[in-house]
Structures are given as structure tokens and as C-alpha cells.
Simulated assay, not measured.
Amino acid sequence: MSINYIPRVTQLDAVHLDNQVEELFKQQIFQAAKFLEPGFLQAILPELELLIRTWIFRYSFYNKKSTFGQEMLSLKYKTDNITSSKLYWYFGYRIGLKYIKDRALYSFTSNIRVQNVIHKIETFQLIGDILNFLRFIQSGKYPLLIDFILGLELTADKLTREDLTDFSWTRELLWHNFIELIGTAISLMNMFGLRNKLTTVLKYVWWRKHAKSSTIPGEAVMTHNTVCGCCSNKPVLPYTMGCSHIFCYYCLVANKTVDQDFACPKCYYNGKEISKFVMV
């Protein structure tokens, strides 16, 4: 008789075990090749990882309908809805896509267009993983995005690690994954742009008297008391954006790079061009 409820912590632990099995294989290969010429394996590292993942896939999910990590915890996928096409899609998403990204990073490092495409793919994948993890915490099914897409549901005849369902253990592991989720989400944020957008919102809500940008910008004058309009320190390589305030070159260029509509935080003048400040 199959178990209807599988604890979330057990499903997450199976995912972690799969990652550790792959790392263990790679460590063994690197250990065996440590006496070879330095850098010998680096040139073929994407192909080497492809072979390792393919071997693991062939003798785990393809043959037994469960990964090595799931098998350690007596879990397996329900076989009634696993088709050949789903096996191919699973292989393509979890193994083929990783190989394409790794090989593109190795072979097209200087190609900006290719790197931008790879970055966008990784961003969409991370967003999908985050949304799926939130759904998994709520429903307790499909810990991986590809499982949810293909409808691969886990089942078990028994649980060999019932001790993991202890409340403190479960809470610790779930919080660990939640912290990783927060770290991933923060890494996707454009902090400069977010700060500027928030400043703009606050400007219109609480500081309405400063809402209108200056239509007649003043002339910038630098004295020994002048500070940067962004960091409030002495300007380093002073630059201006058309208003009467002076900025550090890095402060101004960094803000303009991430937000073309960046306005002066002092007078809210939205200068489109920046220029080096020259003492007259």
C-alpha cells in the first residue's frame, strides 16, 4: 500500500542527496586525474559533467523511475504517468540545458549577445524555481519545477527516515531552504534601480513640494564645502548632470547606467547628459 503523504523535508532531502551524489562522482574523477597536466580536464569539463549526469540518469531515473537520492529514502515516481516523451523532456531540462549553458560560457565568453541570452535563461529559470518552491511549501508536492511541469508525483511504500518528520528537524531544514530562497531573490534585484524607484514613490507621496523638476537648471559651483549629491562625501572626479549639484563620477555613472531616468536627489532635475566639471 502506497503512502499518500510524504513529508516536505524528506522530498527536499532527496534533492540534496542527488546533488551530493553528483558532486561525489566529480570529486572522484578529479582525484584520479590530479597527476595529469594542470588544466587538462578544464577544457572538457562541460562534456565530463554531461557524461556523469547522463550515467546517473541512465541508471537511476531511466531504469528505476527514481533518482539515487529518492531511492536512498525509499521514494520513487508514480510510474502510471511516466512516458518516453517525459523521460526525454526530463533529461533535456535537467541535463541537456545545463550542458548548453556550461558550454556556451566556456566557448562564447567574449560574445556579449550569447552571454545575455544565457543570463536571461538563468534568470527565468531562477524565477520559476522560486515560484515553484513557494508553491511546494504550500502544497507539499513537486519539489522541482520540472516535476511540476511534467506532473511527476512522488510515492513511497514506506519511509525509512521517519525521524526526519520531527518538528524541530523539519523546521530547521525548511528554514534553511527559505534562507537560500531569500538570498536568490536578493541576487536578482537591481538595488540601485529599486532604491531610485522607491525614492521617486516617496517623493510624490510625502514630498510633493519637490515633485516638479527644475525647468531652469542652475550653474554648478564647487567650493571646499561641496559634497556629492549621492554619497554626501567629497566628490571624486567631479561630474554634473545639468543641475547645480556635483557628483562623484562613479556615483553618477552607476546610477545612470541602471536607471536612465535617474534624477538628482537634491533638486530632482532629470539630466540626460553627464559632463566633467571644470573649474573656471
Rank of each mutant, 00 (worst) to 15 (best):
K203M: 12
L41K: 09
L150G: 02
C267T: 05
C243H: 03
L154I: 08
D80C: 01
H210E: 10
N233W: 00
D13S: 10
E172I: 02
S60R: 05
G242T: 06
E47A: 08
G229C: 05
V117C: 07
H119P: 00
N196I: 07
F167I: 08
T10R: 13
I29C: 13
K141V: 12
L126W: 00
S74H: 12
Y250V: 07
I6T: 07
L48C: 10
T155A: 09
E37G: 00
D259G: 02
L73P: 02
V15A: 10
F40C: 12
V236T: 11
F68T: 09
W206I: 05
A43W: 07
L174Q: 13
L152A: 03
I82N: 11
F25H: 14
S2E: 15
H176Q: 14
G128Q: 03
N116Y: 02
A32H: 12
F30S: 15
L188I: 06
G39L: 02
P217A: 06
Q28G: 13
K272C: 02
I246R: 04
H245I: 02
K141I: 10
N270F: 01
F178C: 09
C264S: 11
H119K: 09
Y5Q: 14
F167A: 08
G271C: 04
P235R: 01
V278N: 13
T83L: 03
I118E: 01
K86P: 01
Y106D: 10
T109G: 05
H245D: 03
T223F: 07
V227G: 04
N4D: 13
I216T: 13
F148P: 00
T165P: 00
T54P: 01
E162A: 04
P217L: 01
L24C: 15
L126N: 13
N270R: 09
S107C: 09
Y204C: 01
E153N: 12
I137N: 11
C228H: 01
H119M: 04
L87D: 10
I44L: 03
Y5N: 14
K203S: 14
H224Q: 09
E47L: 04
Q11F: 05
S84D: 01
G271P: 08
H176R: 15
T257N: 14
R113I: 04
L252R: 11
L134F: 14
E71V: 00
D261P: 00
G193T: 00
Y106L: 12
K120Y: 09
P38K: 08
F178L: 10
